[in-house]
Write a protein that binds this DNA or RNA. Sequence first.
DNA 1: AACTAACATGATAACGTTTCAATTGTAGAG
DNA 2: CTCTACAATTGAAACGTTATCATGTTAGTT
Lengths: 355, 355
Amino acid sequence: MNESDDGRGKRQATIVEVAERAGVAIGTVSRYLNGHPIRTGNRDQIEEAIRELDYRRNALAAAMKSELTNTVGFLVPRLTEFHAPVLEQLSQLLRKQGRALLTYCHNDDTAAVVDLLSFFDSHRVDCLIMDGRADAVDSIRDFARHGTPVIFYDNDVPGPNVDRVLVENRAASYRAVSHLLDIGHTRIAVLTGHTGNWTGRERYEGYRQAMTSRGVEVDPDYVLDTHWNEDEAFSGMLRLMTLPNPPTALFCCNYNMTVGAMRMIKEHGLKIPGDISLVSFDDVPLFRLHEAGITAVAQPVAKIAETIANIVSLRLSHRGEAHTAHTTTLDCDIVLRGSTRRLITPQDVARHGRR
Amino acid sequence: MNESDDGRGKRQATIVEVAERAGVAIGTVSRYLNGHPIRTGNRDQIEEAIRELDYRRNALAAAMKSELTNTVGFLVPRLTEFHAPVLEQLSQLLRKQGRALLTYCHNDDTAAVVDLLSFFDSHRVDCLIMDGRADAVDSIRDFARHGTPVIFYDNDVPGPNVDRVLVENRAASYRAVSHLLDIGHTRIAVLTGHTGNWTGRERYEGYRQAMTSRGVEVDPDYVLDTHWNEDEAFSGMLRLMTLPNPPTALFCCNYNMTVGAMRMIKEHGLKIPGDISLVSFDDVPLFRLHEAGITAVAQPVAKIAETIANIVSLRLSHRGEAHTAHTTTLDCDIVLRGSTRRLITPQDVARHGRR
DNA sequence: AACTAACATGATAACGTTTCAATTGTAGAG
DNA sequence: CTCTACAATTGAAACGTTATCATGTTAGTT
């Protein structure tokens, strides 16, 4: 329908043509486009020229000179119910700063991470946000060496001199497991995700400290170092529940594993919390709607996104200046629901009779 | 630790310096970088120079000449459990084509959509993927006029000459509601999302056709035109269940609304499917784990992502060539679970006695 | 050995901005 | 009306790549 809807596009007007048509210098147009003060007469001329020529700014050319692309690289491990809201809010906060996110979901694939790092690098993103990864420290250091700020979130890895936005994984786990201990459980199993990375290690450590601080010994059979994903959690859970002495409570270190564990529990006709109590790291809307309600550690998604956005803004407004990296550690909430129930001890059973 | 970890970054080597050092012409280095054949001797020289100078490609400068940024704009309404996996897979498929996604989550904010459109435009994304939006057709047309391919997914709006990747919303809804009718329900309510947009209208239309094809009249009280979100679904559901003659079954047109409806149902002590049967559009892992299991329409996420990625590739390898827009419509699956149960009729009750 | 093709190479002109130093214009003070 | 600040404007030089085309080199035929 449209005059030039021929699929070819049309020759693009440049700032030069705008300047000619408006009868001013190129620099003046540039200044106008960047919001600098302009003589009123000139402004009108320029605006008219822009309209008539259907001029659109070429951010690439601009970025080339100014060394700023207004683009931020974002590397996310998985788009789970924890990460998706972070991305959602981050995209909006950064937009208010005039920036947008170049997003990639790497699924713990080292090669993909390295590949993307160099893509982001050659595309000159102004900043990089990612989970700290031991398998890519060298690439990360290479990347950061050129002066682009990097922000780690969700997972940490020591070494690189970058800002970090993390949560108090250990303390939150400690409290979660303490809750299970409070209500009488001692045979508590944990799906750690993966103690090969910091987050998994910290969450496990919280578990361990809670246990030992009550004098409960950690049974190695109860510690499953799976891989943050549903299927491994499912099979791990299978091993767990077929032990001669299965656990009475379970602590799952992320959302995906909670789903895997719950699937095993349901498919084998077990009940939460009747047969086993459950605490999940990561809270999702549907946990409220579970039959019993799932007790969960809620990460402060909004605060995380906000903090990251602030750091981006800060680093880029002082770019070039030397600075020391800063780590922000945010608190988590524990939401108690019905999936954790006081343990019925043999004594209880004896006292009240079977079933 | 690193030699130049001073936070300033260091002067960036260019292709010119590489050429000088390698003793070849600039063009030769460019050709090498783009994988064109190069004399063996020269190749070694160039590779050495690149290594020694720590050269990194500047994709901006390249894009400026080649008119290709290897960047694709992605505008997603919300990062729900439907959209997140699409983004996840899309980011990976496009990466294999050497492209990356500039992502923004607009939350149905018209101003944000328009803003992003012009951001993508000035950043010269090679292609744009978004939900078709009536509130932005003009901006979309403006955008497309310059020759950049656009792909609509999830939602459609007639007019723009763009490719479309959609699902058979109407047919899937028809089958979902027919299932409810099959098992005896007639008082079936629907949360349409928003019939102001195509997806909502189609899903409602499937509902309506299923009803009338069985001679069941659609009760306007049972049709709730809410807004795809949890809270409106919650309050809508409240209105629904306090009707003198409340529905015995419910069809929710997206995941968020299902959560809202389930929340109301649970908080008011009602049972699924005891008090009300439920079908959800969009299937998520936790639906399997609900007490009864939630019957749901599963959109073919992987196919959607794949189809979009293929179109991107196709359009960009034939760019500049005139083409006619193509619409792909994909099938959905209906997964029957326990949330839909045969209606207990008054006769049944009479026959078996109360409770 | 001479003669073609076929192909890699070299020099240079774009691509569309921003930036900078130099210049012109403007308005307020004397 | 002139002088002085100060701000807006100008013109040209980058920014780092790709594209073009004429030139040089190689390898394949006869």
